[in-house]
Design a protein around this nucleic acid. Structure first.
Lengths: 113, 113
DNA sequence: GGTCAATATACCGATATGAGCATATACGTG
DNA sequence: CACGTATATGCTCATATCGGTATATTGACC
């Protein structure tokens, strides 16, 4: 399966997810609101569904798509180690961590092989 | 220029960023710690540099790369509208917002063009 | 069952991108 | 200046992916 990061690399798919963030929508609604050809919408939705970003249920002739948070949560989790760079301006702390976190073993001990 | 999302779609680049999250590193250090061929490292670093994810400064024969937070911050910002899906389990609130946020104008008033 | 609306899929061509390898450049040192 | 280390770049091939178009499927309704 595709990585969540690869899925959201596509601008159209991010746009679709943006729409679904506020509420579930049918394919036709997405098509109109994004001015995107219907086959494109369906294809992107398929990718999103197979990657777990959305799920659908039938409502008469329509198919309503709704967001599933897990993959995006994964992306959010990946960002965690980077947040200290912008979450607060604790510059002194940053420099401190910069020293601690560096693994001294790996500090240029030449190619052993 | 590439979108930040496209840049981090690449697993190797995410790995490099992961290393740089804790401290700046030389090309050779990245090469060894990720067991990745040196040209690959250099090429990925070039992409990361041109997209603003990293910056480098020379130190003798080495070139030290360090993280620049802006592009990742942008990704973090994009995630904001989705956080209500997992940040707290306020299910009732979610359903409430689900109603409010939906734009009633766009509620299937046919193709006007 | 015929027809229309809504959605999905198949096919094709163009393009981008990553891996692998060879080679070039830069710099420090004797 | 020769040499070795560190890093960057050029080239080629294989593959993935996106857009566009046509067509198939599904379900509702008369």
């Amino acid at each position: 399966m595709q990585s969540a990061f690869q899925i959201i690399a596509e601008p159209s798919r991010r746009a679709i997810l943006g729409l679904l963030a506020s509420s579930e929508r049918s394919v036709g609604e997405i098509e109109r609101q994004l001015s995107m050809p219907q086959p494109s919408v369906s294809k992107h939705l398929r990718v999103l569904r197979e990657a777990g970003f959305v799920e659908s249920h039938v409502a008469a002739q329509r198919r309503l798509y709704r967001l599933r948070p897990e993959p995006l949560e994964e992306v959010d989790a990946w960002l965690a180690p980077f947040r200290r760079y912008w979450s607060a301006h604790v510059d002194a702390l940053e420099r401190h961590l910069d020293h601690l976190d560096r693994d001294p073993q790996l500090e240029d001990q030449g190619e052993i092989e």
